[in-house]
Design a protein around this nucleic acid. Sequence first.
DNA 1: CTGTTAGCGCCTTCAA
DNA 2: TTGAAGGCGCTAACAG
Lengths: 341, 341
Amino acid sequence: MTTTSGLGREQPPKVTLSDVARAAGVSVATASKALNKRTHVKEATRLRVEAAAAALDFTPNFFARALNSSRTNTIGMVTSDLDNRFVLPILLGAEDAFGSGSLSVLLADARDDVLREQLHIETLMSRKVDGLLIVGRTTNPRPPASVFADVPVVYVYAPSTDDSHMSVTPDNVLAGRLAVRHLLDSGRRRIALVNGEASYAAAQDRAAGVTAELADHGLELVGGHSLFGQWGEAWGRDCGRLLATGDSGIDAVIGGSDHIARGVLDSLRDLGKRVPDDIAVIGFDNWDILVQESRPPLTSIDMNLQHLGRVAAQRLVDAIAGTVQPGRSYEPVHVVARQSA
Amino acid sequence: MTTTSGLGREQPPKVTLSDVARAAGVSVATASKALNKRTHVKEATRLRVEAAAAALDFTPNFFARALNSSRTNTIGMVTSDLDNRFVLPILLGAEDAFGSGSLSVLLADARDDVLREQLHIETLMSRKVDGLLIVGRTTNPRPPASVFADVPVVYVYAPSTDDSHMSVTPDNVLAGRLAVRHLLDSGRRRIALVNGEASYAAAQDRAAGVTAELADHGLELVGGHSLFGQWGEAWGRDCGRLLATGDSGIDAVIGGSDHIARGVLDSLRDLGKRVPDDIAVIGFDNWDILVQESRPPLTSIDMNLQHLGRVAAQRLVDAIAGTVQPGRSYEPVHVVARQSA
DNA sequence: CTGTTAGCGCCTTCAA
DNA sequence: TTGAAGGCGCTAACAG
């Protein structure tokens, strides 16, 4: 008994492999082989060992095992996700891909600081992680981290600037195309794009998708190009007001993010424009708290973050298993239609 | 050279403690003591060993160390944070409290499922985590998890129903009081509370704080009690409209969450009420994306999540060190004044 | 103060 | 097919 009252169940007596071996009447070596389904062990004795292990509730000591430099069944995840938006969906996807229970994830936060990031990576490597997931904050390509050659790395969200590295990024060009397609499907033709900051790859890619899809239909953006600005509601409101009061005759606005789209929505409302009847509005990210209860609820392009995580984890697993599949992949996104468009 | 092109730097030859010892001309044991600042080692030799270690870029083998069943410098963090809001701030706080680099965090997501949670806890214990941070999704007390008695646990956000366990929760009663105090300070007297769901401890506690603080000033809520409903903008809008058009003569509304407060804000705006001139509005959580660009920017009570994480981690550290400090603690929150109140 | 001797629990030769 | 022996890298206990 410990002195701490009622703080938990008793630690069961540690049962080691040699306990199992003794119980099964074999040597430790044989027990080891039996449990690891290794070299030919007589079926009967294997069963006996397994029974003994089960009876004693044997759990192999993780550290003793790792000491003999095998796999650790641990991956490291380094993030700089200041918005707190990507980590969990991606973690969930990763847990799914690995099959629950088998794998553990060491999480570290780099706080968007290269030095901290490298420090954490060193720590993780000293813990012999089997692989590394490096999760970025934007989709802007980022310089690769310095990692031992035998530790596979998958960059998630923000790809590595080195194309030969494994990177998994949402397909923002597709996102732009889908937004346009959705609007065209409901008969819109005069579309404006109120975009985020031009320094963001996401903004550029979405714009590229939008203009490309429009071009495929012989159209172009109202005003000829996307309006780069800030990622915020205020920018959305400002542009929304200008667009709706001008003589542009627009019938749809694409917001560069849900934030922006909400700003647009609010300004249109102020001006008495009906959404979607007069003007349709669509956003990117499908961030529930922004999208579900706006007036009207906002149609948005979902970035499929959990899928992203699953793919990233799967590629990592493959790489750990030796099947390297270098290069960037751009993962699909999809429209979530609500009432604004 | 590996065959994978440019995927990382070469794995340096493993340097072990005995390499260091040899280089320093001492025994392995001495080297160990020297590096761990253990028993009295002559200053000179300690320096020599440290120099050798540095020269060889020695990193102690984590698993060999853990095998001797000392500390693992690892804590487990189990979350059910579906909203994706608490994990990172709390992780940050924990990293701070432990002093960076020294500690690693194994993160697992329970998806709000008791079985999954217990499964993850077992895995974490098999990895000999020094302690466990169990992060909830609400502040409702939750049944304790089953954990070995020698593994300290701190419940964060959602406390354990067992009062003797260590729990760290934001002080929602204080939050309610602070909201009222802030409004009273600016001369408001007729205050309504549009609250979230009654089944949430957070809603109840905030309401309790609000009414208590009002009572201390000889006041009570307009309508006599808080309006429980849903945690959403729509509910805020509905109530906002009712309150503003009725004859209650309110001069301030407290929203049970930033969501709700934003709804209130929007409805007041629709009705031509000026905020804060006619009616002040204040929310809870200080969730940046909701709060910063509303019209006007929303005054809100910040739950201090990073602080919460730091405290939780600190208590965990203390418990690991043997200084158990059982019981719940309620951590302070603070007003972030913007323009709405 | 320093070195020698034993393990920690497991896996892996190698011999039987 | 099985077992004995050695070692992974480190720390702890005891001698010197």
